[in-house]
Amino acid sequence: MTLRFSRTILAATAAFALSSAALHAEMADDELNINGDTPITVKAPAASHLEGHLDEVYSGWLFRTDDTRAMEQDDFDNPIMIFAEKGMDNWSVADGSEGKSCADCHGDISEGMKGVRATMPKLNAKGELWSMEDYINDCRTNRMGAEAWGWDSGPMHNMTVAISVQSRGMPVNVTIDGDAAPFWEKGKEMYYTRYGQLELSCASCHEENYGNFIRADHLSQGQIQAFPVYRLKNAGVVSIHNRFKGCIRDTRAETFGVGSPEFHALELYVASRGMGLDIEGGGVRP
């Protein structure tokens, strides 16, 4: 006979000390309405594919302090808007051997890129799963005759932020069935894989323990609809893949690279966990 302590019994015992309601009460009861005119859904019933895993999904914004949350309410206080403006300026600057700018083909960014961020990542015509960075570099190299931008380079950050702002308040709208299904399945498998010497999966922290503190960090559900985000810690923009890279590294694991096939699949799966939430177009994080 083995005498293991079941999680349920432990959870029941723990409930005396700290009810889970009390834990989640540590999340802010607040609403996001950027500039007072763009309401953003930050809390929603979970998509049906999350049944048995999550009942409700929450933006990481709800887990931040009053001060950090306030910065995202108003573009004058949101440091990411400086990067968005640089990206918008670059939108109409011709580059490369063809002498074309993004605006030449896509028109005004507010029309040409509306809703695009909400659908990322998605399959290209060849059936490859592409993130926004890949679409941008495809236009630069194959349509403009310009050099590709590095995944985490300044101009790439500026442009991905500028494009994301155009989907503010629009619900996450990724396709996960059909030809996208194998990628989604692979991303899901990764989400529940316990990597590294610490043997922790994304779910260990962001599904089983959101609302709890790991040292000073208040764990959120690890959603990506606010990305790219401005991190106060690095005083700069952080891409989705860069965040993934850091989270896997912190499990004492050999991490994956930005732009890797693994992170493309994981991005699709994590994006789908945020269905119901709205794109924030530039979050602010500690």
Binding site: R4, R7, T193, Y195, D250, A253
Partner: peptide, 25 residues
């Protein structure tokens, strides 16, 4: 002791999935 716990094994050398060199990645 606790099946499936998130608590890491402190005196364990594997098997691990993609073990890393400390926090270097």
């Amino acid at each position: 002791t606790f099946e499936g716990t998130v608590m890491p094994g402190m005196y364990k050398t594997g098997p691990f999935i993609r073990p890393g060199d400390g926090y270097t990645g």
